[in-house]
Every structure is written in structure tokens, then in C-alpha cells.
């Protein structure tokens, strides 16, 4: 504690009891002035762009309509490559957190945990360019980005990498969780139950087509 360098500005104070109160008063209000200026930075720096971007994206998703995306998502669910990359991204961009997970209903039971894991792991990388998709949890990204901005550097290279690495990570995570789910099914002796679920899923799909 002794080596802690005090960051607060040393102000001229008179001695005695009054001096203590003066010191307290200065720093009490100073603390909130600092907090206030941080607030102004956040509001003027992030909010204007964010508001118009959110408005645009909400309108766009309404125009596109959930049905059209639903078809694309169902198509993506068939292959393992798209199931943990395109599918969760589309789900988040269209339905946003937390309703995006409801697209899991288009998958056989055994893939649902992996899809959820994949989708939920993208809710923060997605906020870099599409903050509307998870507007309630912006500060995982904005917190770090704010620091980079204060250094006077552009956040775009970092945002791009966060987004792309995010895609790679949710893909790997989906595959690993899918394998672990299969392992858990075998381990808990539920192979038969899930084989049943698969049959039901196939039947339901055949029923839809007919």
C-alpha cells in the first residue's frame, strides 16, 4: 500500500479541522466530477451512433421477417460446418439474445446443447459491429474498446479480429460440445432414448414435407 502513488491532484489546503473538511469536500465532489466526465464521454462517444444503428437494424430485421431467416436457418442446421458457424450467427442477428436460442428447435435433440453453446458464445463478439443483437450486455466489448479509444487508437482492427476469432471459437466450441454431448449420452446410458429422439425428428421432418 505504501508504494501506491496517489493520482488525485494535490490542492492547496489550509491546516486544522477546516482543512480536513476542505480536503474531504474537494475530493468528494472531485470524484463525482470525474465520474460525470466519464459518463459524458460514454454518452457522446457511443450513444448517438448506437441509437441510429439500433433503429436501422431493428427495422431491417422486421422488414426481412423471421420466416425468411427461419428457412435459411433450417437449411444451415443440416451440416456440421454451418451448424456452428452460419446458423448461430444468423440466429443472433435475426432474433438477438436471448431469443436466438429458440432456433435450436430445428435441430435433433443431440445437437441442441452444442448449438446453444455456440450461439451463446457469440453474444459478445457480435456486439462489435451489431450491438443491437445483445444491447443489454455491451460493456464486455465497449469497456475494452473505450480504453483503446482513450489511447487515441482506432478500435476497428481490434473489433474485426474479435468478430472473426469469435466465429472460429464458436465453431470449435460447437464441435467439442457436440462430441461431449455424445459422450455424456453414452456414459449415462441414454443411447436408446436419443436414438428414439432422432427417429421422432426424422418423422416430424418427413411429415412436414408430405
Amino acid at each position: 500500500m505504501a508504494q501506491q502513488q496517489p493520482a488525485q491532484p494535490e490542492t492547496e489546503t489550509s491546516g486544522g479541522v477546516l482543512g480536513v473538511f476542505e480536503w474531504l469536500g474537494t475530493h468528494f465532489i472531485g470524484l463525482f466530477e470525474e465520474a460525470g466526465s466519464q459518463f459524458v464521454d460514454l454518452v457522446t462517444g457511443i450513444l448517438p451512433t448506437l441509437i441510429v444503428l439500433l433503429t436501422f437494424m431493428y427495422a431491417l430485421t422486421t422488414f426481412i421477417g423471421e420466416e425468411r431467416v427461419t428457412r435459411a436457418v433450417q437449411w444451415c442446421g443440416r451440416w456440421w460446418i454451418t451448424r456452428y458457424s452460419v446458423m448461430p450467427i444468423l440466429a443472433l442477428l435475426m432474433l438477438t439474445n436471448p431469443m436466438a436460442y429458440s432456433f435450436g428447435r430445428f435441430l435433433p435433440e443431440r445437437y441442441k446443447p452444442a448449438f446453444y453453446d455456440s450461439a451463446v458464445s457469440f453474444v459478445h463478439p457480435v456486439t462489435t459491429f451489431f450491438p443491437y443483437a445483445n444491447a443489454g450486455e455491451l460493456f464486455v466489448w465497449f469497456g475494452i474498446a473505450n480504453g483503446v479509444t482513450q489511447l487515441g487508437e482506432s478500435t476497428v482492427p481490434l473489433a474485426l479480429r474479435y468478430f472473426l476469432v469469435g466465429i472460429l471459437v464458436i465453431f470449435i466450441r460447437g464441435i467439442i460440445t457436440e462430441k461431449l454431448t455424445a459422450f455424456m449420452i453414452k456414459r449415462t446410458g441414454r443411447s436408446e432414448v436419443f436414438a428414439d429422439f432422432d427417429r421422432q425428428f426424422e418423422q416430424a421432418k418427413a411429415g412436414e414435407k408430405a
Binding site: 436471448p98 431469443m99 435450436g104 428447435r105 435433440e109 441442441k112 446443447p113 441414454r190 429422439f197
Partner: peptide, 17 residues
């Protein structure tokens, strides 16, 4: 909760979590 949103069955929640 996320799995329930995807209409997962109880068995899926049991192995998935």
C-alpha cells in the same frame, strides 16, 4: 433456460448442461 427456448427435452438438458 437456453435449451428450453430451443424446446429441448428433459433428457437433453440432463446431458447437455
Amino acid at each position: 433456460v437456453g435449451l428450453a427456448l430451443g424446446e429441448a427435452k428433459p433428457e437433453t438438458v440432463a446431458v447437455g448442461t
